[in-house]
């Protein structure tokens, strides 16, 4: 397609993406370099009839508002926000590393820092849910492939539900069940014979619940893709493997799995992106006391009760995006290699 025609066709889409994805990124960069104005304080002499006069410090609301209107971005702060306690916390980490009681102690103290807390949970969630979700989906696909044909339709129907459900709704549905007053929470108390057991009160249990929830919503996607992949396994290869004497497991190992590998890369990529942005489950499970994610930190800054913390949210956003690009780098490199090879004739 000639350049000119291409430009006209892509224009609306490109314009939308430039205005609402690329420019906001610029806006984030700028915001992260500024910090909210402090409140303007004034000295007021207050005199009481009996106690005489004292000087009092008060917030000058009008002046604060005027200043915020004049410079909505706040004052320039350079990279200050990135290194403060809520983000990379370089000074705090230096202190921790200086007077440490061993690695475990320093890790525990670093984990108290909000950014690292969110980072750790996000990475753990992504690292646990992505492979386990895929594995669960793979087994379901293998199993569904074997069951009588009449069952397949309903199974696929039910399987799609956790995937297409709104994440916030899905997490609420599960949360209400595992709640200490819900049916699964009750079951857990009965199993452990501990009537005070509550998932919300226990950090590790909250993490575990969030992971299980993540697998629950991730498995169907892998299942559908792998199931479709199983339908296209080349029958010739499968049959020649049988004639060559491969048993059932060897056929899975040498024919089916290699056939599914390209699909698995695709699924892994999509799941990685989706799991990395985990936000709604933490809100749905009301779990911020024991688990926060990077997305949740940003959400929390923007929801802050007394004034939204734009600078803080922007800094976390940029750190998140930077991390994401690092994670995606192998994929980008691989895609580039594929493309170069293809266009090399």
């Amino acid at each position: 397609m000639p350049h000119k025609a291409f430009a006209w066709f892509i224009l609306p889409s490109a314009l939308a993406m430039i205005l609402f994805i690329a420019l906001p990124l610029v806006s984030i960069v700028v915001q992260s370099l500024y910090i909210e104005h402090p409140q303007v304080l004034t000295q007021v002499e207050s005199c009481s009839p009996f106690g005489g006069c004292t000087m009092e410090t008060r917030v000058d609301a009008a002046a604060t508002a005027a200043l915020r209107d004049a410079q909505p971005l706040g004052r320039f702060n350079g990279l200050g926000t990135y290194f403060n306690r809520s983000h990379l916390a370089t000074r705090e980490i230096a202190t921790i590393l200086k007077d440490t009681d061993g690695i475990a102690d320093s890790l525990r103290r670093i984990y108290q820092l909000p950014f690292y807390r969110a980072l750790l949970f996000t990475l753990c969630y992504t690292a646990v849910v992505t492979p386990l979700g895929m594995l669960a989906g793979f087994w379901i696909a293998l199993a569904v492939n074997r069951i009588p044909a009449v069952l397949k339709g309903p199974v696929i129907f039910v399987s799609l539900l956790p995937m297409i459900i709104t994440p916030l709704i899905g997490s609420l549905v599960i949360y209400w069940m595992v709640n200490s007053r819900g049916i699964l929470g009750n079951l857990l108390q009965w199993v452990t014979q501990d009537p005070t057991l509550s998932i919300a009160a226990s950090g590790p249990l909250t993490w575990l619940t969030l992971f299980l929830y993540g697998i629950w919503i991730a498995a169907p996607f892998s299942f559908v893709v792998f199931y479709a992949g199983l339908q296209t396994v080349p029958q010739d290869t499968l049959e020649s493997a049988m004639i060559d004497g491969a048993n059932r497991w060897e056929r899975v190992r040498f024919v089916i799995i290699p056939h599914l590998v390209p699909l698995a890369t695709f699924v892994a990529l999509v799941q990685l992106m989706d799991n990395f942005r985990v936000l709604e489950p933490i809100i749905g499970f009301n779990a911020q006391a024991s688990a926060t994610s990077l997305s949740f930190s940003i959400y929390n800054d923007l929801q802050a009760e007394n004034g939204q913390l734009f600078a803080s949210a922007a800094a976390t956003s940029l750190l998140t995006i930077a991390l994401l690009i690092v994670l995606l780098f192998p994929v980008l490199i691989r895609t580039w290699r594929d493309f170069s090879r293809k266009s090399a004739h």
């Binding site: 915001q31 992106m273 936000l279 956003s317 995006i321 995606l328």
Partner: peptide, 21 residues
């Protein structure tokens, strides 16, 4: 490729860029 990177970005990171403007 750029669209892929955009697709990967958590939506909330973009939202933080929308509010002020």
């Amino acid at each position: 490729i750029l669209a892929l990177v955009f697709r990967a970005m958590p939506h909330i990171t973009l939202v933080s860029g929308y509010l002020v403007p």
